[in-house]
């Protein structure tokens, strides 16, 4: 199966995602420049981390108008699995593929550290290989990861089980101290109504090998492989 890794000017985790998909998981992977108008028959689309268009105006605000985003939108509408990591999550929010917005971290600092993230739901293409409630130790690196949505929207996300990842302590307790950026309800990642589009601030692709200090993120990308090979989200191509 094939991963497409979208490259915006200013993406800087594109190679991390490509490396994880191709060299760690042994899958086919290709970079897709943001001016392209085809995803090249990919089974899974990854919007990587970085600073697309320099994060000018707002994070992801300009990237959402890149030509490739029309394809990403259509791929998502057809049920194709789309993963937005960090800046990629911010792009998905600006593009309206996921609800809500990002605010500056409550600390007003760029938070770069390993955090603990609890997998809240496993019925998505990016968590189906996880155990329910599994705790992942993966890194974050962002200045604007303070997830915000109006209370009614948060309520709907909770009700529809669209909160997929939450910042917790090492033993899974959801406490303010475990929240690195002030996100509403300790939200680290969410999915759309159809559950095929997932965005998260932490970087699973940077934690796929023990040599990198943690391999806990492996299961997220492994889930995508499992989802596609089992035909769970294969209708999109």
């Amino acid at each position: 199966m094939k991963f497409a890794v979208v490259v915006f000017p200013g993406s800087n985790c594109d190679h991390d995602a490509y490396h994880a998909a191709r060299h760690v998981l042994g899958q086919d992977a290709a970079f897709v420049w943001h001016k392209e108008t085809s995803l090249g028959g990919a089974d899974v689309v990854v919007l990587p981390g970085g600073f697309a268009h320099g994060d000018y105006l707002r994070t992801g605000a300009i990237a959402r108008f890149s030509p490739i985003m029309r394809e990403v939108q259509q791929f998502a509408d057809r049920g194709g699995p789309v993963l937005g990591i960090c800046n990629g999550f911010q792009v998905l929010l600006e593009a309206g593929l996921l609800p809500g917005a990002m605010l500056r971290n409550r600390s007003v600092k760029f938070q770069c550290e390993h955090v603990f993230v609890k997998v809240e739901q496993i019925d998505t293409p990016f968590t189906n290989a996880c155990r329910p409630g599994q705790i992942l130790r993966i890194p974050i690196a962002h200045g604007e990861g303070n997830y915000y949505a109006e209370p009614g929207v948060i309520e709907r996300l909770e009700k529809n089980r669209q909160v997929i990842f939450r910042y917790t302590t090492a033993d899974g307790a959801m406490m303010p101290e475990a929240n690195p950026n002030g996100s509403a309800a300790n939200i680290a990642g969410i999915c759309n109504d159809a559950r095929n589009v997932v965005g998260l601030m932490p970087h699973p692709e940077r934690a796929c090998e023990l040599a990198l200090g943690s391999a806990d993120g492996y299961v997220v990308l492994e889930s995508a492989v499992k989802a596609v090979t089992h035909g769970m989200f294969a209708a999109a191509r």
């Binding site: 500056r104 007003v108 109006e150 002030g182």
Partner: peptide, 13 residues
């Protein structure tokens, strides 16, 4: 401007 209901970490700083 950020909506009045939205917390502004930069303004607070």
């Amino acid at each position: 401007m950020l909506k009045p209901s939205v917390f502004d970490p930069q303004g607070t700083t």
